[in-house]
Design a binder for these strands. Structure first.
Lengths: 204, 204
DNA sequence: CGCATAGTTGACTACGCTCAACCCTGGTGG
DNA sequence: CCACCAGGGTTGAGCGTAGTCAACTATGCG
């Protein structure tokens, strides 16, 4: 992406920003901590978890390379959630105050961050829109269309386990599996192993 | 809010920005239109609708005063959805290019917009988090806690019909009603007409 | 050659949706 | 002032569909 690449940063920020490596299951920051640093995933995968009052917990997001972590913390005193590495990962750490200051001096940087925010917003709204679709197979179909859209292609390569996709869609893995077979049976898609071909849209 | 108040805008933007009044059910912009203007709701209520390929439609959001409309359009060529007024409303219209330009010259403005984006992101992520809670009464309870949080109070005044809240929660009105009575029966809340008192948290 | 994990299939359960009737409030007009 | 009406809200009955638990298969890795 065009975002926050270390080399292209203004000097003062470059000096302040550091790269941290974190091991799988290691905690990067914890819900309630003072938010003095803003992180962007450089490689690996970090999950954000929120712990509720009564022992409940919710996975807010799985952040992949290029994604920021808890952007709310940019304008909030404390982190609203806990960040835990899923696998060994690397993150870029920006001192928050330095970053906010840099927005004033380097408008392009501010714009980069705005683009990042808007993209994340778009992604989250997509997920929210999907959740409004109750039936599993229709939800899945819409999701596949979303995936196909940017590429303009109707062949989709799934890079991650179906299990993960299921949780992103808010479905049980079994349900996702059945939804896939159903779409296949109805002729909306074909698939082999991890590749899905999207047929022309016809009402499900 | 501290956002984009007309009077406090830098001069060039003030000259370019205008206020538009729109009647109920009037369309402000349409999905696919060239996105040359960015709108912020000044008064009233505007809903954003996305139309899918097969006659399906989804309400993405109900924007209230202070909220921006389809911020994705800031960095996108076309609007990804249609904006329709729910009631007679007023919106502030910013020429997009002028606004983007102003970000470079007026860092505080850029920061205001970033705050707006982050707030919207927060709100959308809250809704998304809620959707991960399957059982209606637990979802409702979490929602009420969210509402109570900022005020620090545990008395909640519902300003809009339960029907609307139901759709925001992704529930049928009947289900919400039942969930309310259930929480009341279990002692988690008390309520009279449109006022809800949140009792101390105990696992549901 | 197993072992662990992902994926699939089956049977059962549970919970939210739908449809329908009913209550209750507020507003309007006779 | 009361009768009527409309809308939101509540309650009931039945259905559908996704979740859950379980067994089984397939795949990849040591």
């Amino acid at each position: 992406m065009d975002l926050l690449v270390l080399d292209s940063l203004p000097k003062p920020l470059q000096n302040g920003a550091t790269i941290q490596t974190i091991m799988a299951e290691q905690i990067l920051f914890q819900q309630g901590d003072i938010a003095s640093t803003f992180f962007v995933v450089e490689s690996g995968q970090v999950r954000l978890v929120r712990y509720g009052s009564d022992d409940e917990s919710a996975i807010l997001e799985i952040a992949e390379p290029g994604q920021g972590l808890a952007e709310i913390s940019l304008f909030s005193d404390t982190y609203p959630c806990t960040a835990i590495a899923d696998v060994n990962s690397r993150v870029i750490a920006y001192p928050k105050l330095l970053l906010l200051q840099a927005f004033h001096d380097y408008p392009d940087l501010a714009e980069s961050v705005m683009v990042m925010l808007v993209q994340k917003l778009e992604r989250v709204m997509m997920r929210l829109e999907l959740r409004d679709i109750r039936s599993a197979h229709k939800r899945l179909l819409r999701y596949l269309r979303f995936l196909a859209q940017p590429k303009g292609q109707n062949v989709i390569q799934l890079d991650r386990p179906l299990k993960d996709i299921a949780t992103e869609l808010g479905l049980a893995p079994e349900t996702l599996s059945r939804a896939l077979t159903r779409l296949e049976r109805e002729g909306s898609i074909s698939r082999q192993t991890r590749q899905i071909i999207l047929h022309q849209s016809s009402a499900a």
